[in-house]
Design a protein around this nucleic acid. Structure first.
Lengths: 344, 344
DNA sequence: ATATTTCTTTTAAACGTTTTCGAAACAAAT
DNA sequence: ATTTGTTTCGAAAACGTTTAAAAGAAATAT
């Protein structure tokens, strides 16, 4: 059972017309008669014809394939909840528009390791989406500066379309809500400082507290990697052992917050009666496990969809597409992990 | 800045040798002199040459691309924790061996919708991995019966390589452990019956209880969709309201178990002192949130890795590869959500 | 010197498409 | 009868690569 693939040539023979005519008939060109089109299509169906992406790509310089580059600090790959949701949404939109998705990263140790750009050129990606990556990587830089259509997520580059989640507003909303619940001693177990996301969240944290007239206390600020429950656990334990412990602890993300919750409970304290907790991202479980997490729910659906949509615009119209930064807001999920401690 | 891609022809001109020589030099054929090889490679580098996957695929009938088909009942796509872990591992292994990964499913509403097989032929996938899919789908059947190398995950097909997680042993281990902790009134909120996974888990559940001499009580058996916290919540509430409620409730997966935990807590009951709980899969949070979940930790890493490895074997040696079913065991994570209620 | 072998390179066809340009056929207009 | 226009089709080149077979060059054997 040799893999015999039927080609335009086969249809052309079966139909008694030229290959060119078959091609044009199948692509619905205007210079082919209705009758011929129908006959060609019928026979193509009967023969079980499928177009050949490689040949099309070779000829047209269009692969209908989008490259996805995602590397996070922990190399969690597809198992990163925020990214997998964004990607899923991106994928759905891209597929609706007839594009496939292929990953750019990966270690390729057996073959000669390719740079991201090499890989993208090799595969002939029509465009590329870059997310959550360490943007200081020279390979990423090379890719971004290439002439391949690029959309970045959560990082802004000069002259490139970027989709960023609104960390400024997110943190502001969250801090404000916590403040309104009466908290003044607010700790923040934030992510490592080397990312743009952390930077803008920290800035917003400081600014918001300043606007609210709440002094920031250094001992309440702790750096801990994203999505790391153990480190968050340790940080939380230390915070609780301070002479003047916080009444509310914010975390870099819901994952970390769960680690914090464990630490709090291990000390025999209750949430939110004794200590309040807030996460970030709004992952599924955070909104299903009690106490429901007070968090900012990222609109991953929108981020992915808009990223795909803009990238495809850019692919189809490289000159005419507006280069812009699109900010996607999250929404405050009040949950029940932050207590109202206002005096009655 | 027109996208000018350098080709073998350019190198050939720059080197003063034929295109064939360039091709063979870059591919390290034995009939090219060392000197020429070096010169060609040097100039290729200098010119910034990248091979063209489309042209290679067209000529060699090898795309170095693997198709991934995954559709679950809830269409959770990449956000399905079990699958995303398996896929991540699959991806890593495949990439190490020089393959890329592209998704097969997706709605493609704008283009004329392709069947899975059409899509696979169109893209020229060297092989295909199928997971978690509703295997009764005729499109899946068509793909599986095609002559494309296929590996299936969690479902066995005649004459096809399958990687399956050991649900029989998993459930047996879990039930036995629960039994050993003294439980006799064991309820099972299992997944919907229309999947092979549910079937084998249920069979194992019944068999194990029978072997242990514990009668199965119909009112303890509830069907509820996988990964559905709400439905698990409802089912749990009903179970707890039975005249003779179970002392331990097993769930289809950790996700569902969290829904159950909420229901139990809402009734003012403690875990595991009042009611014991067991999940399945061993997702990250289940092993981080207290009470640590008693569960079967799936070896997603191994499943993905072996699937990729076998598929690539099959691609490289279609005749000589053993068609087999590979069973991957999970491990019992005792956690702390099942209480020991043996009399002292 | 010629024949044989070995090593290196080139020629040319092929993979399955798309697309430009020209041709054929026919009708309508001059 | 010639021109013009319209509609439909085909020839052929091109995309970038691989590879079988032929050819050339150099070395060795007869």
């Amino acid at each position: 059972m040799a893999r015999r693939i039927v080609s335009l040539k086969d249809i052309s023979k079966a139909c008694g017309v030229s290959i060119a005519t078959v091609s044009k008939a199948l692509n619905d060109h205007s210079d082919i008669s209705k009758e011929t089109k129908e006959r060609v299509r019928e026979i193509a169906d009967k023969l079980g014809y499928h177009p050949n992406a490689a040949a099309q790509a070779l000829k047209t310089n269009r692969s209908n394939n989008i490259g996805v580059l995602f590397v996070d600090e922990a190399n969690s790959g597809l198992t990163h909840d925020y990214f997998s949701h964004v990607l899923d949404s991106f994928k759905k939109k891209a597929e609706q528009e007839g594009f496939d998705i292929t990953f750019i990263n990966g270690d390729r140790s057996k073959t000669n390791k390719m740079s991201y750009l090499s890989h993208a050129i090799y595969r002939g990606f029509d465009g590329v989406v870059i997310a959550c990556v360490e943007f200081s990587d020279p390979e990423v830089d090379e890719l971004i500066k290439s002439n391949i259509p690029v959309v970045t997520i959560d990082h802004t580059f000069y002259n490139r379309i970027a989709i960023v989640s609104d960390n400024i507003k997110g943190i502001r909303d969250l801090v404000t809500y916590i403040y309104e619940q009466g908290h003044r001693k607010i700790a923040y177990v934030h992510g490592l400082e080397n990312t743009a996301v952390t930077q803008s969240r920290l800035t917003s944290f400081y600014n918001t507290l300043q606007d609210l007239g709440v002094p920031v206390r250094d001992e309440y600020m702790v750096s801990s990697p994203y999505r790391n429950t153990e480190k968050a656990f340790e940080a939380t334990t230390k915070l609780l052992e301070l002479p003047d412990p916080p009444t509310c602890i914010m975390y870099s993300d819901d994952f970390a917050a769960f680690g914090g919750i464990n630490a709090i409970r291990q000390k025999g304290l209750r949430i939110p009666e004794d200590v309040s907790v807030a996460g970030y991202d709004g992952i599924e479980l955070a909104r299903r496990i009690s106490p429901l997490m007070t968090t900012i729910v990222q609109d991953t659906d929108r981020i992915g969809r808009v990223a795909a949509s803009k990238l495809i615009d850019l692919i189809n119209n490289p000159k005419g597409t507006l280069i812009e930064q699109i900010v996607v807001e999250g929404t405050l999920e009040k949950g029940e992990s932050v207590a109202n401690i206002n005096p009655v």
